[in-house]
C-alpha cells in the first residue's frame, strides 16, 4: 500500500548528472545545487563562466547578464526555441529587459547587455528547474531560450562577436515512489 500511495500524483524528478565541455577562452562549469525537482521546490543548478585568458573578455547577452534566458532541450538539433523546459531565475522578474509574467509567459528585449569579464574572473548564476515544466526525461542539453548560443563574447584580439555554444548536458530522471 505504501509503495502504491502517491502513484496518481504528479511526477517528481531528480537531476542525476551534469556535464559541460568547452574549448574556448571561456570556461563553463555547472553544479547541482538542489537535485530534486519536487512539488515543494524546484531543482537548482549553478552555472559559472570563467575567463581563462590573461586579458579581459567582453560578454554579450540579452535579458540578464551573463547567461540570458536558458532552456533544456532533448536535442541540440532542436530548431524552434521554447520547445524545451525553461530554466528559471528570479532575476528574470527583476530585469527590466525581461517581460516575465510567469514561467508560461515571458519575453525578452533585444537590448544587448555587454559587460567585461576580467582575466581569471568567474561569474555564477543559479537557475531553477521546476518539475511542473519538465516535458521529458533523459539526457537534456542547455541552450539559449530564443537563440541557441548561451552567450556571445569577444576578446581584445578579435573584433567579431563569437557565439559560445558549449555542450552542457543535464541528466533528468523520474523519482521513484518507493
Amino acid at each position: 500500500m505504501v509503495s502504491l500511495t502517491g502513484c496518481l500524483g504528479a511526477t517528481e524528478y531528480t537531476i542525476t548528472d551534469v556535464n559541460a565541455e568547452t574549448t574556448t577562452p571561456l570556461g563553463i562549469s555547472i553544479e547541482i545545487v538542489e537535485p530534486n525537482a519536487v512539488i515543494e521546490h524546484p531543482a537548482q543548478m549553478a552555472f559559472s563562466v570563467t575567463n581563462k585568458q590573461e586579458s579581459p573578455i567582453e560578454i554579450r547577452n540579452t535579458g540578464i547578464w551573463p547567461f540570458g534566458l536558458l532552456e533544456l532541450v532533448p536535442s541540440l538539433d532542436t530548431q524552434d526555441g521554447g520547445s524545451g523546459t525553461i530554466l528559471w531565475t528570479d532575476r528574470y522578474e527583476e530585469s527590466r529587459y525581461v517581460d516575465a509574467e510567469s514561467r508560461q509567459s515571458y519575453g525578452v528585449e533585444s537590448t544587448p547587455l555587454v559587460r567585461t569579464l576580467d582575466a581569471g574572473e568567474t561569474v555564477t548564476e543559479t537557475y531553477d528547474v521546476h518539475g511542473s515544466d519538465i516535458i521529458e526525461t533523459g539526457t537534456m542539453y542547455v541552450r539559449g531560450r530564443f537563440e541557441p548560443p548561451i552567450l556571445e563574447y569577444t576578446t581584445e584580439e578579435n573584433e567579431e562577436w563569437d557565439s559560445f555554444s558549449p555542450e552542457i548536458t543535464v541528466k533528468l530522471g523520474e523519482q521513484s515512489l518507493i
Partner: peptide, 23 residues
C-alpha cells in the same frame, strides 16, 4: 478506506503552489 488513501494521496505542483503544506 485503503482505496481512499491510494486514490486521495496526489501530490501536485498546482496544489502545492495554491495551498502549500495544506495540500
Amino acid at each position: 478506506a485503503v482505496l481512499m488513501v491510494l486514490w486521495g494521496y496526489r501530490p501536485s505542483y498546482i496544489g502545492w503552489d495554491g495551498l502549500g503544506a495544506n495540500i
